[in-house]
């Protein structure tokens, strides 16, 4: 009887060494945020076994990386503000650009940004915006032009907000003419007080894909991500996307390599693979988010290239403000956020 645990242990050992035997790569990302077939093609071509691990939001990802001191994962896809935070905390390692042949495909527009000057530690994968989603069957989209419109009393108990502190505060900060990366306590307080006024209108802080409640007919108005709208429109063309005039929220998700990564070589191969034009093209076609890859964009159909939801006009992009790390001010936001959700 006693032999059994020992046997079990032996089997497990054998299994875990078997896992280690082949060349592998641990990717940590939102689920399905890289098309399944893209991963499979990469595996087929390189013989590298990809283990695709997932998280539900940036914060959970950061907590897990932090807890394990950057060990265990080879590729992670954080949003810009976390790239800057993780870089400063020494959780990332430098990307060796000599190993990348497809770097030239990236459009300079999204390179060398304040969150990672010179892109020493990160290379952009996808970007997108957070704007207003409207179901045109119920609401005339032309009546919604700004974040401020959401504050209208007639939407009581109707709105969907994303369950993301930075995005929700972005809305109120912009409405009041402040920067989305404001660290000024007075400005944040003003935004918080404004959000308190919005709360009676809020039906739900959405924790899964925001297009679903729109498609299910549970909400007709609220915040939504650009890619979600593209995906939703395939099934339901009534769902419209509005760039609020105060400014939509813009974010970039980038590839980084954690400092404790074990398969650095494979990680570079993977990044280089993802930077290929035809791979970038496929990603946009499947996910509906925007690519920073100029060569990939050129391969897209005319229709997608000219879709203002995926590739907003130069006018919108000129004023676009991307999310950045705001350091210790985050605590301030978190405190207000908790109060907001508790109903104060």
């Amino acid at each position: 009887m006693i032999k059994l645990p020992a046997l079990l242990a032996a089997v497990l050992m054998a299994m875990s060494t078997a896992l280690h035997a082949e060349e592998k790569l641990v990717v940590y990302n939102w689920a399905e945020y890289i098309p399944e077939s893209t991963v499979a093609d990469f595996e087929k071509e390189t013989g590298i076994k990809v283990e695709y691990s997932t998280y539900e939001n940036n914060e959970v990802m950061y907590s897990k990386i932090k807890l394990q001191k950057g060990k265990g994962y080879d590729i992670v896809v954080p949003s810009a503000y976390l790239v800057s935070k993780m870089r400063q905390e020494g959780l990332l390692q430098k990307i060796d650009k000599t190993k990348l042949t497809n770097l030239k495909n990236l459009s300079p527009d999204l390179l060398d940004k304040p969150y990672d000057p010179g892109n020493g530690y990160s290379l952009p994968y996808l970007w997108g915006s957070t704007g207003i989603g409207v179901n045109s069957k119920e609401i005339d989209p032309s009546t919604i032009t700004s974040w401020a419109d959401l504050w209208d009393e007639k939407w009581q108990g109707k709105l969907l907000l994303t369950d993301d502190v930075r995005e929700v505060f972005h809305m109120a900060l912009k409405k009041n003419g402040f920067s989305t990366n404001s660290t000024n306590p007075d400005e944040v307080k003003v935004a918080y007080e404004d959000l308190q006024k919005l709360m009676p209108n809020v039906l739900v802080f959405n924790a899964d894909a925001p297009r679903e409640p729109f498609m299910a007919g549970d909400v007709n108005l609220g915040m939504i991500w650009s890619g979600e709208v593209i995906m939703a429109q395939a099934d339901n063309p009534d769902i419209h996307y509005v760039f609020p005039k105060e400014g939509a929220g813009f974010w970039v998700d980038s590839f980084v390599i954690p400092v404790g990564a074990e398969n650095v070589e494979s990680a570079h191969k993977f990044i280089d693979y993802m930077l290929r034009p035809e791979v970038g093209q496929k990603v946009v076609e499947e996910l509906g988010y925007s690519t920073p890859n100029a060569a990939a964009k050129a391969l897209l159909s005319e229709e997608l290239q000219n879709n203002p939801v995926i590739f907003p006009s130069a006018e919108i992009m000129k004023t676009a403000e991307f999310q950045n790390d705001i350091g210790d001010a985050m605590k301030l936001y978190d405190g207000y956020w908790e109060k907001l959700k508790t109903g104060e």
Binding site: E59, V204, K341, G343
Partner: peptide, 22 residues
Amino acid sequence: LLGGAKNLLLGNIIKNQFLVVR
């Protein structure tokens, strides 16, 4: 998944403190 705009359960707060706010 099912709840609305308000934090309803202790579990949400605890998870938030451990994995989000840290």
